Amino acid sequence: MITSMTGFGKAVLELPEKKITIEIRSLNSKTLDLNTRFPSFYREKELEIRNIISEKIQRGKVDFSMMVELNPAARNQKVNADLIKSYIQEFKNITPTVTDGELLPVVMRLPDVISYTQDDLGEDEWNQIRATIITAIDALNEFRLDEGKVLEKYITSNLTNILDLLTQVVPFEIERITTIKERFAKRLEEVKVEIDQNRFEQELIFYLEKLDITEEKVRLKNHCEYFLKELEGNESNGKKLGFISQEIGREINTLGSKSNHSEMQKIVVQMKDELEKIKEQTLNIL
Score class of each variant (00 low, 15 high):
Met1Ala: 08
Gly9Tyr: 10
Leu13Trp: 01
Pro16Thr: 07
Pro16His: 06
Glu17Asn: 01
Thr21Trp: 02
Glu23His: 13
Asn28Trp: 09
Ser29Thr: 11
Ser29Arg: 12
Thr31Glu: 15
Arg37Pro: 11
Lys45Gln: 04
Leu47Cys: 02
Arg50Trp: 01
Arg50Ile: 03
Ile53Thr: 03
Ser54Asp: 03
Ile57Gly: 07
Gln58Leu: 09
Gln58Gly: 08
Asp63Gln: 15
Met66Pro: 08
Glu69His: 14
Leu70Ser: 11
Ala73Pro: 08
Asn76Pro: 12
Asn76Gly: 14
Val79Ser: 05
Asp82Ile: 02
Ile84Gly: 07
Lys85Met: 14
Lys92His: 06
Ile94Trp: 08
Thr97Tyr: 05
Val98Leu: 02
Thr99Lys: 05
Glu102Gly: 00
Leu103Ile: 01
Val107Met: 01
Met108Leu: 08
Ile114Asn: 01
Leu121Lys: 06
Asn127Met: 05
Thr135Cys: 12
Asp138Lys: 14
Asn141Ile: 06
Glu142Asn: 13
Arg144Tyr: 02
Asp146Ala: 13
Asp146Arg: 15
Val150His: 04
Ile155Tyr: 11
Ile162Ala: 03
Leu166Cys: 04
Thr167Lys: 14
Val170Ile: 14
Pro171Ser: 06
Glu173Gly: 04
Glu173Phe: 12
Ile174Asn: 02
Ile174Met: 04
Ile174Asp: 02
Arg176Ile: 12
Arg176Glu: 07
Ala185Lys: 08
Lys186Tyr: 03
Lys186Arg: 04
Gln197Ile: 02
Gln202Gly: 05
Phe206Gln: 07
Leu208Cys: 11
Lys210His: 15
Lys210Tyr: 13
Thr214Arg: 15
Glu215Cys: 12
Glu216Asp: 11
Glu216Ile: 11
Lys217Leu: 15
Leu220Arg: 03
Leu220His: 05
Asn222Gln: 13
Cys224Val: 01
Tyr226Pro: 05
Leu228Tyr: 04
Lys229Phe: 09
Leu231Gly: 11
Glu235Asp: 15
Glu235Phe: 15
Ser245His: 09
Ile248Lys: 07
Glu251Gln: 03
Glu251Met: 05
Ser259His: 01
Ser259Gln: 04
Glu263Asn: 02
Val269Asp: 12
Gln270His: 09
Glu276Asn: 07
Glu276Met: 05
Lys277Glu: 10
Ile278Ala: 15
Lys279Ser: 11
Ile285Arg: 13
